[in-house]
Design a protein around this nucleic acid. Structure first.
Lengths: 222, 222
DNA sequence: ACCTGAACACCGTTCAAGT
DNA sequence: ACCTGAACACCGTTCAAGT
C-alpha cells in the first residue's frame, strides 16, 4: 500500500510526524509489547503527539495494521535462490512465506485477511503458480492449487500461533489433558489409543510433510 | 466444558440467572447482530441484569465464547451416516465439521483456538484418525494426517470468512483489483496471465478438491 | 495542511458492599 | 451464594477549533 511519493505542494504547515515514523514506532511497540498493546493512543503518546494527529496519516487502525504487515514483508521476505525443479520451487517459495509469517505471531490478526497480504509477496505467489503450471497443471488449476496451499499454510500458522498464545495464558492446557484422560475407549478407541502421545505428536513440526503430501495430491496423475 | 451438575447445597440466595440463560441470550445476540456486538455489558442489559452478575457464572469473556462454540457444536453437529470405505469416511467426517463451522462465521474468533474445539467434535476426530489408520497409516502418522487436514480446513474457513467480512466493509476489493491490473507481465507473467480471472477463480469453492488432494498425498504409496 | 483538546460512546474487569 | 453500584483503566473515532 505505497503512498504516492509525488512531490506535494508545500502549502500550509510542515508535517511534524510522518507515516514512516508512525510505522516505525508501531513496529517497535509490537516487537516489545505485542499487538494487543498497539493502540492509537499509546502509539500517539510514544511518538509524542496526539491520537488525532495519527488520523492525518493513516485512515484507521485497520490500515495501520496492513501497513505494518507490508512493512514487515518488505523488510524480511528476501527472495531466495529457488531450485530449478518446479516441484521443489513450489515447496521453497511456500516455505519462505510460511517461515516469515510464522516468525511473526502478531500477524495472525492481519493475516487472516485474504490471499493478498502484500505486494512483496506477489513474487512468491508467482513462483508457486508458475511451478504448478510447469508441473503440468492448467493455469486455472494452478490458481486453485495455490489457494489450497495457502489455506493449509495460513491454517497451520493460525492454529499453532493461537495454541501457543493459549499455552502462555495456561489453564486450558489442563482442560485438554483432562478431556483426553477421560476418553471412553469403547466409544473413541483410536483417540484413547493415542491419548497419551497426543501432546508431543501435535507439537511436532510436520508442516513440510503435510505440504509435500498436499502438493503430491495436487499433482497426482498429471 | 460442562459445569458440575451435582446438586448444590441450597444455601444463600437462589440464583436469578443461569449459565443456560446467559449462553442462550449470547447466542441470540450473536445471531442477530454479530460477535462484535456481544459484550458483557450488552449481554447483561439484554438479560436484565448487571455486568458483574455474569462473572458469577462464567470466568471471563473468553470462557463465554468457548461455551458458545461448544453450545453451537452440540446443537448443530449431528453425527451423519458415514461411508464404510475408510477414505470416504475421512472425507465425510471432515466435511461435516467444515460445513458446520463454515456456516458459522463468527466462529473464527474462537476457532483459531486449537485442535480441540468441543467434546462434541471428538467423535469426528475419531472417525478421521481411525479412517486414516484403516487406510494404512500408523497411529502416529494418522494423528499428523489429522492435523494437516485440520490446518487445511481451519485455514479455508478463516481465509474465506475474513475475505467475506472485508468484502462487506468494501474498499479493499478495489485495492486488489488495482494491484492485479498494474501487474508487470515481464516480472510476474503467470499472475498477469490469470489476473482477470483471479477473482472468479478464487471465489470458486474448491474445498473438497483440495481436501481430496491432501488426503491422496497423505495416503500415497502406503 | 497539519495538529490539538475535548468529548462521545463505548469496553472488560475489580472491589466493596448489600441481601 | 448471589447480586449491585461505583469505579478503574482503558479503547477507537468524531468534531470544532487553532496555527
Amino acid at each position: 500500500m505505497p503512498q504516492p511519493s509525488a512531490p506535494r505542494k508545500a502549502l500550509g504547515r510542515p508535517p511534524r510526524i510522518s507515516r514512516e515514523e508512525i510505522i516505525e514506532t508501531a513496529r517497535r511497540i509490537v516487537a516489545e509489547q505485542g499487538v494487543d498493546r498497539l493502540t492509537m493512543r499509546r502509539l500517539a503518546a510514544e511518538i509524542g503527539s496526539t491520537p488525532m494527529a495519527l488520523y492525518h496519516h493513516v485512515r484507521d487502525k485497520e490500515e495501520l495494521l496492513v501497513l505494518l504487515l507490508d512493512d514487515y514483508a518488505t523488510r524480511t521476505l528476501r527472495r531466495p535462490e529457488l531450485p530449478a525443479h518446479p516441484r521443489e520451487r513450489v515447496i521453497a517459495a511456500t516455505t519462505a512465506i510460511h517461515d516469515a509469517l510464522a516468525a511473526c505471531p502478531w500477524i495472525v490478526e492481519v493475516l487472516t485477511a485474504d490471499d493478498l497480504m502484500s505486494t512483496t509477496a506477489l513474487w512468491f505467489v508467482e513462483q508457486i503458480v508458475d511451478g504448478l503450471v510447469e508441473c503440468g497443471l492448467s493455469p486455472d488449476r494452478a490458481v486453485h492449487g495455490y489457494r489450497a496451499i495457502w489455506y493449509y499454510t495460513a491454517g497451520e500458522i493460525v492454529v499453532r500461533t493461537t495454541a501457543a498464545r493459549r499455552r502462555a495464558d495456561d489453564d486450558s492446557a489442563t482442560y485438554r489433558e483432562q478431556v483426553f484422560a477421560d476418553l471412553d475407549p469403547s466409544e473413541l478407541p483410536r483417540l484413547a489409543q493415542v491419548a497419551d502421545r497426543w501432546a508431543p505428536l501435535t507439537a511436532e513440526d510436520t508442516y513440510q510433510d503435510g505440504l509435500r503430501a498436499l502438493l503430491d495430491g495436487l499433482l497426482a496423475g498429471r
